[in-house]
């Protein structure tokens, strides 16, 4: 598989941005300055980026409670995201959404979602509108192995086939629904579920950007070409707890240390592209440096930005069509 140099560079940059963004939030959340809850995407970067590298602004995605990675992969700016997470006026939702409600409709990012299994029904609507408008776009739902057992998800799989819409269901299977192992909580398997609803199933190693890129490309092409929905099952791992502060007593000793040492999607990516001579290490190092200062600036700006005031309370709450 050949991937263009500019896609390789932008994909690496997105993955690095997600990593830095999340590692920084891990530290900043502990200071108590960030309101609400955060769920970090560290370790899962290749999934969001591998999928979204196939998308344009016309395509739509629905994310999860663990949504920062999907936002960045879909092109939402880190300044607006960081400010949103800090609850500031300069946030993408003017500080009123926070981590679990970041949305930017102008970029086709329909929103992170505090409801487990909330995304799949949304993208059925989005995909239906793509079909009716004939705009050639696809709609993607990211959801976890826990959400794959929700009624709303299973209904959406059914509806997507019934309507024959350009929808792709991306199961980000990190092995745990909060603290419950998917080996315990998921009956049957995702492949048979896809077959049960009459849609093709694709599967990949989520620690490998190239595997995700390849499988996502096939699933998205299937949907984009008018063949109806598809399911993409991404096997991956999260490096932090379900939420920040989760003591992860349900994980084996050294489980995360081993993941970090052996299954780091960024390390895998660097190794592959430098060994193949596609990109050189210095270009990637430059990107690392640039991303780091971008995140520093985003945190500093977010902390300095004003909080929403009372006059903002009802702003953007009601819209008319």
């Amino acid at each position: 598989m050949q991937i263009a140099r500019d896609i390789l560079l932008s994909s690496y940059r997105s993955m690095r941005t997600i990593r830095e963004f999340e590692e920084r939030l891990h530290v900043e959340f502990a200071t108590g300055e960030i309101p609400g809850f955060v769920h970090l995407y560290c370790g899962e970067e290749a999934s969001g980026v591998g999928v979204c590298s196939h998308l344009t602004e016309k395509d739509t995605i629905a994310s999860t409670h663990r949504g920062h990675g999907h936002c960045i992969a879909k092109g939402v700016g880190v300044d607006g995201m960081m400010a949103e997470i800090y609850g500031r006026q300069t946030g993408v939702c003017r500080g009123k959404g926070g981590s679990m409600h970041i949305a930017d409709l102008s970029l086709g990012m329909l929103g992170a979602n505090g409801i487990v299994g909330g995304g799949p029904p949304l993208i059925c609507g989005a995909a239906l509108s793509h079909k009716i408008l004939k705009d050639g776009a696809v709609a993607i739902a990211f959801y976890g192995d826990g959400a794959s057992n929700e009624g709303s998800t299973l209904e959406s799989l059914n509806l997507a086939t019934v309507w024959n819409i350009p929808a792709v269901f991306v199961v980000e299977d990190n092995g745990y629904g909060e603290a419950t192992g998917s080996s315990y909580a998921c009956a049957g398997n995702q492949k048979d579920r896809a077959a049960g609803f009459g849609m093709p199933y694709f599967e990949c190693d989520g620690n490998d950007f190239f595997a995700v890129y390849q499988a996502a490309g096939e699933a998205i092409s299937h949907a984009r070409n008018g063949n109806g929905p598809a399911m993409l099952h991404v096997h991956l791992a999260r490096w932090y707890g379900h939420f920040e502060g989760d003591a992860m007593t349900y994980r084996a000793d050294n489980e995360v240390a081993k993941l970090r040492a052996e299954h780091d999607c960024l390390v895998n990516f660097r190794k592959r592209v430098t060994e193949a001579g596609l990109l050189d290490a210095s270009a990637l190092n430059d990107l690392d440096t640039a991303v780091k200062s971008e995140i520093d600036a985003a945190v500093a700006a977010a902390k300095a930005a004003p909080l929403p005031d009372e006059a903002d309370l009802l702003k953007d709450v009601y819209v008319s069509y």
Binding site: F29, A30, T31, G32, G36, F37, F243, E244, G245, D246
Partner: peptide, 10 residues
């Protein structure tokens, strides 16, 4: 080094 916040309501 400050007392960290874990979770939602700590």
């Amino acid at each position: 080094v400050t007392m960290p916040k874990f979770g939602l309501a700590m």
